[in-house]
Amino acid sequence: MTDHRTTDADRPAPALDQHVFITGANGFIGRAMAERFRALGATVTGVDLVADPEHGVIAGDITRPEEWADALDGVDVVIHTAALLGAAYSLERAWHVNVLGTQRVLRAAVDAGARRFIHFSSIMAYGFSFPDGADETYPVHIEYDPYTDTKVNSEAVVLAAHTAGEIDVTVIRPGDVWGPGSVWVRSPIAEMVKPTGFPLPNGGKGVFTPVYIDNFVDGMVLVLAHAEETRGHIYNLTDGIGMPCRDFFGRLADMSGGKVVYLPMRIAAPLANLVGALIRRTGTHSDLAAGTMHMLNRTGTTSIEKARKRLGYEPLVTFEDGMERVEEWARESGLISA
């Protein structure tokens, strides 16, 4: 492998003299942000279902902030990442966490006197059938899917608070955040190495919208550093590219020795619903659902020109470099054979 990687010296590095509180702080994105923010001078604390005292994370449920809201005292910025991800939840449960939970965290932040609230939405707020180059002015679209529904509605909750002048709000719409240890690596490889393989609808022609974890964190550093340019705004944060799902997941299959199974959409969606429901009835979580197949069959790409022009955002880690790092991690962690 050719070592042509970016280093920390290449990355944006403004001084971050702020107290940042992250919900979902133990997650893949939360941990990566906290590490980088601390390196740039920020104080970082947070909440997650399981405490991590070493990293300033307390245990708590975002739908019950009254049990942990005192941890918001003195916080400048709340970054709300905690959510149920994917389509494999009932609409009622997804709404309870992703919409009601967001509203309750927001109220706690307002009551504590935090100045800013940065809300993680998703490019899925555009629905499944947005066109190439969709930017932040493209209308959101609620689909027959709990994830898109609740992401659209959670945005409405936080933007209403901004409009009312209660707190400065920024909405971030990440692409498919990937990298060593991410769900976009672990879960597909785990399925690929099974005899049944990893299912992709429509010949893998659907569009995957990657954003490598370091690139995403760099974007969030710039969001923190540019309060005026981000207040009241929505930003797409991706690698600025889209690719057929067969290309992204095909690379994971090649490195793992696994396989991808291509199914017509008319079969993939109902089959995913059936198999996923059976798996979940055993008490094991599965992301298989019709909505997952529709997500993997998206038609368009998203624009990052707004983040480029207003924040100076530029993804530094290329897809090839990211895949090299993923393969190294996968072999070192034992996810695939050395």
Results as ranks from 00 to 15, higher is better:
Asp48Leu: 09
His4Pro: 03
Asp3Ile: 14
His4Leu: 14
Arg5Asp: 15
Ala51Asn: 02
Leu16Val: 12
His19Pro: 04
Arg36Met: 05
Asp10Ser: 07
Thr43Glu: 14
Phe28Ile: 08
Ala32Pro: 08
Ala32Glu: 13
His55Gln: 10
Met33Lys: 03
Gly41Phe: 13
Ala34Gly: 12
Gln18Met: 05
Thr7Pro: 04
Arg31Glu: 14
Arg36Pro: 03
Ala42Arg: 10
Thr23Asp: 08
Ile29Gln: 04
Ile22Val: 14
Arg11Trp: 08
Gly46Trp: 06
Ala51Tyr: 00
Arg31Ile: 02
Thr7Ser: 15
His4Met: 11
Thr23Asn: 01
Ala13Trp: 04
Asp3Thr: 14
Ala34Leu: 00
Arg5Phe: 14
His19Cys: 03
Ala34Cys: 02
Val44Phe: 01
Arg36Ile: 12
Ala39Glu: 10
Val47Met: 01
Gly41Pro: 10
Phe37Gln: 04
Thr7Cys: 09
Arg36Asp: 11
Met33Glu: 11
Ala42Gly: 04
Val50Ala: 12
Thr7Glu: 09
Arg38Tyr: 04
Gly30Gln: 06
Asp17Val: 04
Thr6Ile: 15
Asp3Leu: 11
Pro12Cys: 08
Asp52Met: 01
Asp10Lys: 05
Val20Arg: 08
Thr23Pro: 02
Thr43Lys: 09
Asn26Thr: 03
Val50Gly: 02
Val20Ile: 15
Ala32Cys: 09
Thr43Gly: 10
His19Val: 11
Thr23Phe: 14
Asp8Pro: 05
Val44Gly: 07
Leu49Glu: 09
Gly27Asn: 13
Leu49Met: 14
Arg5Glu: 03
Ile22Leu: 15
Asp48Val: 09
Leu16Cys: 06
Val47Lys: 02
Ala39Asp: 14
Val47Leu: 07
Arg31Thr: 06
Ala25Cys: 10
Ala32Ser: 15
Leu16Arg: 08
Ala42His: 13
Val47Arg: 02
Asp8Phe: 08
Ile22Trp: 03
Arg5Thr: 09
Asp3Val: 13
Asp8Gln: 03
Ala15Val: 13
Gly30Ser: 08
Glu54Cys: 02
Phe28Asn: 02
Thr45Lys: 00
Leu16Gln: 03
Val44Ala: 03
Arg38Val: 10
Ile22Ser: 06
Ile29Thr: 09
Gly24Leu: 00
Ala13Arg: 05
Val44Ser: 03
Ile29Glu: 09
Asp10Pro: 00
Arg38His: 06
Gly56Glu: 00
Gly41Ala: 13
Val44Gln: 06
Ala32His: 15
Leu40Asn: 08
Ala51Pro: 02
Val44His: 01
